[in-house]
């Protein structure tokens, strides 16, 4: 019997969910500040994607008998949004936050295996190989998706340096 709140997998899923909440709140505000119709459309699509991911994560947490973290009342941008560039920077920060959360999810099965091996029942759920693989596939897809979306926003902000070497591992 494990305590869901101490389970590394649950903690990682909660972290990903918190990143989705932030994105769902922020993208409509970002969309208002963007001027290019294509970028406004992209912000709408990304909001819808994050909503879909949020719903899946809530269901996933429910199967683990964990209470999903609620959304905060408001999310502040990294700096006041006075134009499209500020909005793009905010979007970039959101996607970097998602990449970071997915990286935690990628490592969570390893931490769960360690916890289960060390102190049984003290926070590490024993995952089956299939479950571990499914979680890591989900994390890799999320990490890759967030990295690609972040690259898209970075291309607008700094076209000569659109990528980072280690998405999800940025300081």
């Amino acid at each position: 019997m494990t305590v869901p709140d101490q389970d590394p997998v649950v903690q990682a899923l909660q972290r990903v969910l918190a990143a989705q909440h932030a994105a769902i709140y922020s993208y409509p505000v970002i969309g208002v500040a963007l001027r290019q119709p294509g970028q406004v459309q992209l912000a709408r699509q990304l909001e819808a994607q994050h909503r879909h991911t949020r719903d899946e994560l809530i269901a996933q947490l429910a199967t683990r008998r964990a209470v999903p973290v609620p959304a905060e009342a408001a999310y502040a941008p990294p700096q006041p949004v006075t134009g499209p560039a500020d909005a793009q920077r905010w979007a970039l920060e959101l996607e970097q936050g998602c990449a970071d959360a997915y990286r935690y999810l990628l490592v969570a099965p390893v931490l769960a295996a360690r916890a289960a091996a060390g102190t049984p029942g003290a926070g590490g759920a024993v995952l089956s190989a299939a479950e571990q693989s499914a979680l890591q596939r989900q994390a890799l897809a999320g990490l890759s998706g967030a990295a690609r979306t972040a690259t898209g926003w970075r291309t607008l902000l700094s076209p000569s340096a659109p990528t980072v070497p280690f998405p999800g591992l940025e300081p």
Binding site: Q136, L143, S144, V164, F166, P167
Partner: peptide
């Protein structure tokens, strides 16, 4: 290793 390989793959 898992974090590094995942990050490199995403990059």
């Amino acid at each position: 290793v898992v974090a590094l390989l995942g990050s490199i793959a995403a990059c």
